[in-house]
């Protein structure tokens, strides 16, 4: 159920500001791709362009072509909600719905998509929580507020909520930046497990994390503040971290830049 993503010449704007300039990359199904680079280089913008969350912001627009198994998600007749169901997203800060219980949070996406049958919802909730390595910790308190969990648990709850709708692709925007090292490891373990079922793209500032979890790595950078972000190098993670072809990449991963 994972799908291939192909970006060709994707350029995103905030109003008149060009945030990323003609990014092209192909992401293979059932792989983990890490996007690294200094702050403000457009990694998150590119990530949000993949599930059309970029256009939620006022004045934001996009040029280029982004296909998922050869369907352009930016075609005029594409239903944007269908795109977002197909391409789920986990955000930087855990954002469970504060008014909902743990259970309600997990099934929120299913309910939005018209699933009403209680038994179906129950099964999906348990399966998603198990996949997110959270079931054992919360199975006795599913009715308690989701926002009452610890930060790491909340983030796994958000992952459970995302995968409950069974997307093809899961985008993660610095999912561990607000978490402690143990919770981070728990999320990384989870990514390996989810890789069997989903295509995962993760933005991270943590280079060890990129090296640990990803199959391929893309390095983004900007020349100076105000310039659009570009994809400098995109290759197998091992190659990027041992023998990058670009000088800029090498400088960044060895800590001489950014």
């Amino acid at each position: 159920m994972a799908k291939r993503i192909e970006a060709s010449n994707v350029t995103s704007y905030y109003g008149s500001f060009k945030a990323i300039d003609s990014i092209s990359m192909t992401v293979e199904p059932k792989s983990i791709t890490a996007l690294i680079g200094p702050s403000g280089c457009g990694k998150s913008t590119f990530l949000r362009s993949i599930n059309r969350m970029h256009e939620v912001l006022p004045g934001a627009r996009i040029e280029g072509r982004l296909t998922i198994d050869d369907q352009n998600i930016y075609d005029a007749d594409v239903d944007v909600t269908a795109v977002r169901r197909m391409i789920g997203m986990v955000f930087q800060r855990p954002n469970p719905f504060p008014t909902m219980s743990i259970y309600e949070n997990v099934v929120a996406g299913l309910k939005l998509n018209g699933v009403k049958k209680k038994s179906h919802l129950d099964d999906a909730a348990e399966a998603s929580l198990r996949s997110a390595n959270l079931w054992e910790e919360v199975k006795d308190r599913l009715g308690r507020p989701g926002a009452g969990l610890s930060g790491g648990q909340q983030q796994r709850l958000c992952i459970a909520r995302t995968i409950a709708v069974e997307p093809q692709v899961v985008l993660m925007d610095e999912p561990c930046s607000a978490l402690d090292p143990i919770s981070t490891l728990a999320i990384e373990d989870l990514m390996f497990k989810l890789k069997d079922r989903f295509t995962i793209i993760i933005v991270t500032h943590n280079m060890q994390q990129a090296a640990r979890v990803s199959d391929k790595t893309g390095f983004f950078s900007i020349d100076k503040t105000g310039d659009p972000g570009r994809l400098i190098e995109y290759d197998d993670t091992q190659k990027i971290f041992s023998n990058p072809t670009q000088k800029k990449t090498e400088d960044y991963i060895t800590g001489r830049f950014g």
């Binding site: 269908a82 719905f97 504060p98």
Partner: peptide
């Protein structure tokens, strides 16, 4: 963050 969470679920 909550509004975006809902939108990202396909709302």
């Amino acid at each position: 963050a909550n509004e975006e969470a809902a939108l990202a679920l396909g709302a």
